[in-house]
Design a protein around this nucleic acid. Structure first.
Lengths: 165, 165
DNA sequence: CTCCAATGGTTGATGTGTCAACTGTATAGA
DNA sequence: TCTATACAGTTGACACATCAACCATTGGAG
């Protein structure tokens, strides 16, 4: 009846090892970053995107697109970061619905202190464990899976299923 | 001063695509499972481990080791699952400190209904996007990264740094 | 036996993520 | 113009994860 009741050994090995690796690698990198800088992975991602944007600020929905987060998650997280004086909300002159999220001075300092450390962790626990060929292979694999998932950025689509132009 | 200030394009492509793929793939699989069965990924992992154990029950600390969770996370989650009548706590006759976590009838039904669906999702969005060579390559890559992380299962080690088992 | 550290597990506080419902503005269509 | 709809963002309730502190039992050293 079903096309296949379970995974083969090869498939299972790939799936299981991926799950375990993800959990452990993300945990290690996030924990290390937090201990050294007080920034969570989510904080880091927001600050990186803002610091790369012109003027250190971004429309909220663009930041949401860049991080791949739902708008509600973004809003909650920005609220928390605002309380810690890492970012600031600014109103948008050309669209009164909109809002900018902008880096504060403290936010800029935080990301500039954190970035080299974070890169060091990624290098130590990710890059250095793999050969150049493996890096390429992993990128190809990830892109193949992403292609199989389709283009809709999952959490951003509403029930109406409108394409994300 | 620093060995390398940033990642090369190749390194960055691998790292970025991995992060994005993880987020999207896990999100898709978890969401689909939840919509179809009412089970979260965490629920599923607990139930799978219990269903594979003799008698459908496991000492809590062994379940924690199998899932890779901290004991406090496990305890909280078991409490929630107990309220939903998916599992049951049982006392341990040979060690009065200990506790068993056991599948209920409803829990057994839930996992048996969910497992084939979950396998289908994994096949559709993961296995089917990759060639057999890529599956092997991914497993090798994951294992290489895990080896680079060391053997300590991160969250389970206390501050005393006692070796796990 | 007594003392003490390690083990197995629970709890409460807090930070984080998700869903559904909501406000207000922009914009397309009649 | 008026109206419906889509869009940008917020909020509140709740599920989930993490940390530190805690309790009881075990098992070993003296």
């Amino acid at each position: 009846m079903k096309p296949s009741p379970w995974l083969t050994d090869r498939e299972q090995r790939a799936w299981r090892s991926l799950l375990t690796m993800q959990r452990r690698l993300n945990g290690r990198v996030a924990r290390q970053l937090y201990q050294e800088t007080g920034l969570s992975g989510a904080d880091y991602e927001v600050l990186v995107n803002l610091s790369e944007a012109p003027g250190g600020r971004l429309r909220a929905f663009l930041l949401g697109r860049a991080t791949g987060w739902e708008k509600s998650r973004l809003s909650h997280h920005i609220t928390r970061m605002e309380e810690r004086d890492l970012v600031r909300r600014e109103s948008c002159p050309t669209d009164s619905r909109g809002a900018y999220v902008a880096l504060t001075g403290a936010g800029r300092e935080a990301i500039e202190a954190a970035a080299p450390r974070h890169v060091g962790h990624v290098r130590r626990w990710f890059v250095d464990s793999l050969t150049p060929d493996q890096l390429d292979a992993l990128a190809d694999i990830s892109e193949a899976i992403l292609a199989g998932l389709g283009d809709d950025p999952d959490p951003c689509a509403g029930p109406s299923g409108a394409p994300a132009g």
